[in-house]
Nucleic acid binder design. Structure first.
Lengths: 149, 149
DNA sequence: CTTCATAGTGAGTGACGCTCACTATCGTAG
DNA sequence: CTACGATAGTGAGCGTCACTCACTATGAAG
């Protein structure tokens, strides 16, 4: 019966997900951002200036929801709606200077967080962790839990 | 500069977080549960029959929010509000038979998921993963990200 | 030019978090 | 025993974020 070991492992992973989720969704308020609006900024960073429909597809949410998120981000000055070339129905959602600064700060924060998490870890243990994570991710992939990217 | 390795590691962990979160919050609808109501059921399982204020404290949410969650769970038949001994202000939130069945199914699902994740993993790799996770969790603890339990 | 598809929004709903004000009850100090 | 402050829970109302459905404006293709 390895069930107990498996359960203990899963408990650790679940605890980690809870802690990281809480942490990520903290501090955003300080920047005037909400979790979903931040998620849109990350997506916009990945895709570059995009139509709202493309953001909706990438984030796997309804187009109508993107309208609301972009409304909020425009109101708070993180993005702007520009003209979309050759299609007057669509907008090109684009970072403002403030938005660019914000996403770059988020990226820097993430790098710093990675450093804090791993810098003190013996490299053997780090490698073992990575191997285990890759295994788990591959298993999840095989189970049909695919990466959104 | 190990920054790239750290970033890759953090990316894996974040991806895992996202995938597991999505997965956990799927399928709940099939049981007629929402994420927060399910979270309350898990808490109730841990604490045993409780006053709403104790659920609020354990879940780190406002008492008013618990009122709403319990309202929903009572309406859908998962819990009931019983008399609290020696205090007529409070309720003793208690599993119904349906609620008990539901939480036991969730527990069984979780055990099964643990099996699916780890059963095929070489035990050395599993141990390496656990060591890495323990290290990360200890680091998070040191950074002030404490377990909610 | 007519017809069908597409991009986005208005209107409405529901879950889930919050605060503030309020009621009912408890517990304790006179 | 009574008055007073603390506690348990709820009503009212707000904000975010997800959804659907119906609609407008525009694009694209016959």
């Amino acid at each position: 019966m390895d069930d107990a070991r498996f359960a203990a492992g899963l408990d650790r992973i679940i605890l980690l997900t809870v802690l990281l989720n809480d942490d990520m969704n903290r501090g955003l308020a300080a920047d005037g951002l909400t979790p979903s609006r931040t998620s849109l900024l990350w997506t916009l960073r990945r895709l570059g200036p995009s139509a709202q429909k493309d953001l909706a597809a990438a984030m796997k949410i309804a187009p109508r929801t993107v309208t609301g998120l972009v409304d909020g981000l425009v109101a708070t000055g993180f993005v702007s709606r520009e003209a979309y070339p050759d299609d007057r129905r669509a907008f090109l959602v684009t970072f403002t200077a403030k938005g660019l600064t914000a996403i770059e700060k988020l990226e820097a924060d993430q790098r710093e967080f990675g450093r804090q998490l791993f810098a003190a870890m013996p490299s053997e243990r780090f490698d073992g962790l990575m191997a285990g994570l890759d295994d788990v991710l591959a298993t999840l992939h095989a189970l049909g839990l695919r990466s959104p990217f």
